[in-house]
Nucleic acid binder design. Structure first.
Length: 586
RNA sequence: CGGGGUGUGGCGCAGUCUGGUAGCGCGUCCGCUUUGGGAGCGGAAGGCCGCAGGUUCAAAUCCUGUCACCCCGACCA
């Protein structure tokens, strides 16, 4: 590549619409250009980087025995209707119509197509297991694309799917993918964690996410400092305490608690009007009742009440993950009007549950086990129930993991206090089970000649996101600092000065390195000043920068490490071998 | 969808309060000089001031509406 002709324009200033470093630098250094929100063009340098990442992913997928294929991005509606995702995916799908008014979509993910392809070609247990993958452009009409290429509406994803006869086979395929992912993310140079995750809209059971650790990441996860437990906050399972005996517990009594619609005011009122001998009332003694409106994919609305310890908020992400594919909406005044048994600010378990007078489904936090006593709403304005014992005075319809998770909460494995951190989701692996195979009738004959439903796994890597994520983790004040195996070139040669000898030698060195298999970005611009060239080289971020300039008269050139800034003089005579050694190609 | 902000040459911005017919820096083009840390001088091209109405002798500026984009929250690789 020659800078004099390369389709590139670097920007001296940060683009105004870019906030996060990866976005700012990828635009400034001329890797990408925005076309529309969440939709980007890959310029020559950017495309090289994208292809490098793709290649690493491809090698590892091939290495674990998966086979690459390619589906269209433009898809008919029918397969997605069969699995229910045409509606479940909601507004996130880009939908379009053909001239005959037929419905199409731009694929957000391809479970259906892979399932149908296997159904089309295979029909015996002898054909299994098989893992297939593609590296392809996906489309999701994100409510809010952001951070450049980190979260786009069009993005490149590697998605793969495993097909097995039984659970044991699925476990094996899942583990193979997991191992391949570890190799992929190691090669991409991420600091990452593998966390337990929710299966989400994909359906299925076991699921883990690969999160690149990043302070500005969108996902919050917790991890245990003393064992290997780590989980996305959505997926944290609270360790339920043992039920306790309530034989000696005082009977429930409803007391007047004026002006106490919030937990804080309630605790004040309790300590003021009904002080306890042994200790003061605290938020942890109260059971907070929160009601929301669930909107199911078919449009039906169902109220849901939840009881959580009073010192905790309901975490909307956790709640959303629990009730998926239903959507959570606020419970409006008009909803309260429709359910007169729900007294705003004073709701309590005794009026809740499918069997109760309100008929509203009531789920409680796992900490609300049988025998625990609470102060909760009295279902009458200005009243609360005290010594309300779970299992004696009320029974919930079930449990829900919706209360917020906080640093310091006990690890479900070992009880140590959990720590919280943030990350960017780079990969996600799922054991899907038979959801798609059943919906699309993917069965094979087993050794007894009987039809068996195939069990599936689904595995994704955000390829274009990885580019952003690597940029996010590999830059400094001057610009990008690519890892060698991702960089758009092995060496960036800067020719300074107007001396013809410099230009000639730089050209000669470039050819020699290229002949040895290295990729070179040569700054052969005649008009640009040395300062401009140095700045551009630093911005672009090729890991090794070679300066051919004033030292040439003395028979030396300069080899500089972009990341450390270390530089050394190298004799022209052994320049090629030295540089090849530097870039790890000798 | 809720909150905040911004729309002015390719990029970054000023001008808007207090209407008077568009400016600065960078970039681009031409010429000369310059070449180890974003060069100098001279010349040039390039803008329906997001869009639509309105007020006015006159609108980038005031009024109304509308659209777009960015950031923060609810969704996802």
């Amino acid at each position: 590549m020659r800078m004099s002709t390369l389709f590139l324009r670097t920007l001296r200033e940060d683009p105004a619409d870019a906030e996060v470093p990866s976005h700012r630098l990828l635009v400034r250094a001329g890797y990408i250009r925005r076309v529309s929100p969440g939709i980007y063009t890959w310029l020559p340098l950017g495309l090289k980087v994208l292809r490098q990442v793709e290649q690493i992913v491809r090698e590892e997928m091939d290495g674990m025995g998966a086979q690459e294929l390619l589906f269209p991005a433009l898809l008919p509606k029918e397969p997605y209707e069969a699995t229910g995702r045409w509606t479940e995916y909601g507004d996130n799908i880009f939908r379009l119509k053909d001239r005959k008014d037929g419905d199409y979509l731009l694929g957000p993910t391809h479970e259906e197509l892979f399932t149908l392809a296997v159904k089309d070609l295979f029909n015996s247990y002898k054909d299994l297991p098989v893992s297939l993958y593609q590296i392809q452009t996906k489309y999701r009409d994100e409510a809010r694309p952001r951070a450049g290429i980190l979260r786009g509406r069009e993005f490149v994803m590697k998605d793969s799917y495993s097909f097995d006869l039984d659970e044991a086979g699925l476990d094996k395929s899942y583990q193979l993918h997991r191992d391949a992912y570890v190799r992929i993310f190691d090669r991409l140079g991420f600091h990452y964690v593998i966390v337990q995750a929710m299966a989400g809209a994909m359906g299925g059971s076991k699921s883990e996410e690969f999160l690149a650790t990043a302070e500005n990441g969108e996902d919050t996860y917790v991890h245990c400092p003393s064992c290997d437990y780590a989980a996305n906050v959505e997926a944290v399972k609270v360790a339920a305490p043992q039920p306790i005996s309530y034989a000696d517990a005082p009977a429930v009594h409803v007391e007047e608690t004026p002006d106490s619609p919030t937990i804080a005011t309630l605790v004040d009122r309790l300590n003021e009007l009904y002080p306890r001998a042994d200790r003061a009332w605290a938020a942890t003694d109260t059971l907070k009742t929160v009601v929301v409106m669930l909107v199911h994919p078919d449009g039906t609305r169902e109220p849901l009440a939840m009881g959580v310890p009073g010192d905790r908020e309901v975490d909307e992400k956790r709640l959303g993950a629990q009730v998926e594919p239903a959507r959570v909406e606020a419970f409006e005044e008009s909803d309260f009007a429709a359910y007169p048994a729900l007294v705003k600010g004073y709701m309590g378990p005794q009026a809740l549950g499918l069997e109760s007078e309100s008929g509203v489904r009531f789920l409680v936090d796992p900490r609300v086990v049988e025998g625990t006593a609470w102060v909760a709403g009295g279902n009458r304005h200005g009243y609360h129930a005290i010594d309300l014992v779970a299992g004696r005075d009320f029974t919930a319809d079930g449990f829900i993991e919706a209360a917020e998770v906080r640093p310091g909460d006990p690890c479900p494995n070992c009880g140590t206090g959990l720590e919280a951190a943030r990350g960017i989701e780079m990969g996600h692996i799922f054991q899907l089970g038979t959801k798609y195979a059943e919906a699309l009738d993917l069965k094979v004959l087993d050794e007894n000649g009987k039809l068996r439903t195939v069990t599936m796994g689904s595995y994704g890597v955000g390829v274009s996101r990885a580019v952003a994520c690597i940029a996010e983790g590999n830059h400094d004040d001057l610009g990008l600092c690519w890892p060698r195996n991702i960089s758009p070139a092995d060496v960036h040669i800067v020719a300074t000065g107007k001396d013809d000898a410099v230009a000639l030698y730089a050209e000669e060195l470039t050819r020699a390195l290229e002949a040895a298999g290295a990729t070179v970005l040569l700054d052969d611009r005649k008009q640009a000043s040395p300062g401009v060239k140095f700045k551009d080289a630093e911005l672009i971020g090729v890991p090794t920068i070679v300066v051919v300039g004033r030292g040439l008269a003395d028979g030396t050139i300069e080899v500089k490490d972009r990341r450390s800034g270390d530089r050394r003089e190298v004799a022209v005579d052994n320049a090629v071998s030295e540089i090849l050694r530097e870039i790890g190609r000798s």
